[in-house]
Design a protein around this nucleic acid. Structure first.
Lengths: 261, 261
DNA sequence: GCCTTTCGTCACATAAGGCGACATGACGTG
DNA sequence: CACGTCATGTCGCCTTATGTGACGAAAGGC
């Protein structure tokens, strides 16, 4: 410490101010803060490290940003595990025949299914996902039904009562559904109540329903069971799941289909 | 938004601003961004590359556009008469207050209205257009309701009985409707029966309804009258229409609003 | 068609930031 | 007062981010 005269802000005071600024601006810069508090950048760095360890912000080069708890907006998720999803998409498309009515759930994996369907003729696609609807309506020889409703910005898809009701109008040959996780005891689970309900309904209603889940979902625990998911014909994955999960799953009913990559 | 004068903006701050602009404008240019942030083009290029790898945008020569599978065909059509449509969009947005419920019809002109609405807070958007739904659901503080139904591939929007029915559920403050043409005797006309019916219904139902028509529609004859279009509060255009048309139109009821370019 | 301009890419240089190690001074405790 | 602890500052080294210039490729004008 060089100047013992001037009252320097105590650490907790700095932390409060840092968080306040962060909330206001969205980002803070180490240089600015060091300048403002008249301390060394190393000190600020230590402050930020501490706050980051508490989960109150995210470190970036030169400063920090608001912590975004696994916000993983749709567009960011798209690339994750792209190869696996494409493989699942091809396997799923192999279950679809020309002329079928296909329901596609929202999600990046089902988007991969949609992309893999481009060679099928005379399909009717029924979906809650804006991206899938837009993609498929540009294909020749495909009819698209968009299930309406309130749009969930994270999913970029219709949810809620309207979508739930609209599902009932359709006779669907095959449905491809997403899911939040595949629990260790072989259940497909979801993040939200409404999502689980929607998927449950589809699983029961379609001639055949398949869940499409990439391997990052294995063993992941999300809060909601999808009721009656056992009615699904199968679960399409990109890798063989752990034996325990596979057995538990097949014991409940659905077949496990491993996509060839 | 523009505190980038003193210290150089942190990379994440740039990224956020880039995405914000992209959502608002549809495209961004490297030169503009480099200028705005006061960094070299190479840096912007690296930013865009990074965002593109995350799937958040698409690189094009000289800049970037909204992510592809979703926006492709639209960006081409959007160019037609783009300046005029943007002007109409601004004029239309001027009629919208924070907190309103806004119906947006399908079409490129109404898409321009959607883009111009980005500064309004707490809106509820209700639309049949896939692109508009996708665009608006990425805006903060906007609720989006997608009216479901069969998708018309030309419009990339829901049409048909489901959409027609869904319209009935909403209480709408203001509606912006497209149209196929503005006939010499001052009628707004349409291409298809179902389109005309849908627009007619909206014109009658919204608190205030406006048709948005760029000047290329003046005097154009399309086959179907839009019934009860006279209930609309106004017609927003980018240029003063020929006197005969203007008079005929105002005699029927709707005001003619010429957007300032 | 050719030409000019703009843009993208690469390689490399430089600046800015991150991190560990250690020194210093404040403070409390025995 | 000696000691330990804690917060901070300083230094050096390495990593990351950014700038620069050369060159080939693409877009646009004539």
């Amino acid at each position: 410490m060089s100047d013992s005269q001037t009252a320097r802000a105590l650490a907790p005071r700095r932390h409060g101010e840092i968080l306040r600024r962060l909330a206001a601006e969205g980002t803070v810069s180490i240089t600015e803060l060091a300048d403002f508090f008249d301390v060394s950048r190393q000190t600020i760095r230590r402050d930020l490290k501490l706050l980051a360890d508490r989960g109150q912000l995210d470190l970036v080069h030169g400063g920090a940003t608001l912590f975004e708890p696994v916000e993983a907006a749709f567009t960011e998720r798209r690339e994750e595990n792209a190869g696996a999803k494409a493989a699942i998409g091809r396997a799923a498309a192999g279950l679809v025949r020309d002329g079928m009515v296909v329901f596609l759930d929202s999600g990046t994996t089902t988007l991969a299914v949609a992309q893999a369907l481009s060679e099928r003729k005379n399909l009717t696609i029924c979906t809650t996902s804006l991206s899938i609807a837009l993609l498929m309506c540009r294909q020749p020889q495909v009819r698209v039904h968009m299930l309406g409703g309130e749009i969930d910005p994270d999913e970029e898809a219709a949810v809620g009562i309207d979508a739930l009701e609209a599902i009932g109008h359709f006779r669907v040959d095959v449905a491809f559904l997403g899911g939040g996780g595949l629990s260790p005891d072989g259940e497909v689970t979801d993040f939200t109540r409404s999502g689980a309900e929607q998927r449950s309904r589809m699983a029961g209603m379609a001639g055949k329903a398949y869940f499409v889940l990439d391997s990052s979902k294995f063993g992941r625990l999300t809060p909601l069971r999808i009721p009656r998911f056992e009615l699904a014909a199968g679960v399409i994955v990109d890798r063989r799941p752990p034996e325990a999960i596979r057995e538990a799953l097949e014991r409940r009913g659905p077949a496990v289909i491993v996509a060839a990559s």
